[in-house]
Every structure is written in structure tokens, then in C-alpha cells.
């Protein structure tokens, strides 16, 4: 879309969406609401990626984070004990350490951003090219080793997660809530 004003407006809208989602995650009383509010953050960030002409990253953001991570988080939340007690399941604790951590994180992000791009606008081209093939080519040439390392990492992740989860499941098998029939 031409006209940088539109881009700026869209940027602020998407940023607002992401930030509203993040704020809801942090401040919502109900842990389930927090989990669902992540959707706004993920989609907003994906929109920002799309605005930065990073099409593959945007789509992968939606696919992996909304389609996978969010579902996992929701399942995890719904599996937590005492979730039904909770309009109050998200108490705000440790305000000062939290603030410090937030400031440290913000500083890190600002430093990274400035280092990576410098004070210049990223959105320059009106019709930037697709990033799918460049990324694919890079994964086949420069980043062959990381690519394969990722598969090993995924293997390790799966093994570890399954081991931990199934162990807990077996331990919890005696509990009265868990012993129910498969649904």
C-alpha cells in the first residue's frame, strides 16, 4: 500500500493490539483470560512482521504461536489445579523485582534494536520481495548445520517433554480428577 501515513497508522494500530494483549495478559485476574489475551499479542506481532515485509516470519508466527503455543498454553492452563477457583488466580506479586526485570529487558531490546538497524526506517520499498525463497536458500547453504541442529533440538524437546509429562501423568493417575475415562 502506498502512502506512508497508512503504514504509520497501521503500525500504531498493530502495536496497540499487541500491547493491549500483553497488558491483558499481565493484569487480567483470570488466568484463562490471560492465556486468551495472548492471541492479541501474537496476532499483533505477526501484523508487525507483515508490515516489515517479513511474510514468512509473520505466517510462521501465527501458525506456530497461535496454532501451537497458544493451544498448548490453554491446555496447560485448563489442566492447572484450582483453575475453577479462579477469578483471582492471577495475583500480582513481586512488583519491584518485576519492574526491574522489565527495565532490564527493555534496555536489552532497545540496545539490540539500535545496534541492528540504527535510527532509520525499515519500511522503504513499496513492494518488497517475498522472503520465502531467500530463507529456504539460506537454510540450505549458510545455515545447514543450524537447520539440522534444530531437528536434533526438536527431538530432544519432544523426548524431554514426553518423559516429563507422562511421568507426571502416571503419578497423578491416582488423583480423583485424573482417573476419569478418556474423553
Amino acid at each position: 500500500m502506498n502512502g506512508s501515513i497508512v503504514q504509520v497508522v497501521l503500525f500504531y494500530l498493530l502495536a496497540a493490539l499487541a500491547l493491549t494483549g500483553a497488558c491483558l495478559v499481565a493484569f487480567s485476574r483470570s488466568i484463562v483470560h490471560s492465556a486468551f489475551a495472548l492471541l492479541g499479542t501474537f496476532v499483533g506481532v505477526a501484523g508487525l512482521y507483515a508490515l516489515l515485509a517479513a511474510d514468512l516470519v509473520a505466517i510462521v508466527q501465527v501458525m506456530v504461536y497461535v496454532g501451537g503455543v497458544l493451544i498448548l498454553i490453554l491446555f496447560a492452563v485448563m489442566l492447572t489445579a484450582r483453575v475453577d477457583e479462579g477469578k483471582e488466580s492471577n495475583p500480582t506479586v513481586g512488583k519491584i523485582p518485576g519492574l526491574l526485570a522489565m527495565l532490564a529487558m527493555a534496555g536489552l531490546l532497545v540496545v539490540t534494536a539500535v545496534k541492528a538497524f540504527g535510527p532509520r526506517t525499515v519500511i522503504s520499498e513499496a513492494n518488497p520481495p517475498s522472503t520465502v525463497s531467500p530463507i529456504g536458500n539460506l537454510l540450505l547453504s549458510k545455515y545447514v548445520l543450524p537447520f539440522e541442529a534444530i531437528s536434533v533440538l526438536l527431538l530432544a524437546v519432544l523426548l524431554g517433554a514426553v518423559t516429563i509429562a507422562s511421568g507426571r501423568m502416571r503419578k497423578g493417575a491416582g488423583g480423583k480428577q485424573e482417573g476419569e475415562a478418556p474423553r
Binding site: 505466517i59 501465527v62 501458525m63 497461535v66 496454532g67 497458544l70 493451544i71
Partner: peptide
């Protein structure tokens, strides 16, 4: 594949 995940949520 990505937008369908919105349906899941």
C-alpha cells in the same frame, strides 16, 4: 494453515 489456527482458538 495459519489462519485456520484462529478457528482452533
Amino acid at each position: 494453515l495459519a489462519v485456520t489456527s484462529l478457528v482452533v482458538v
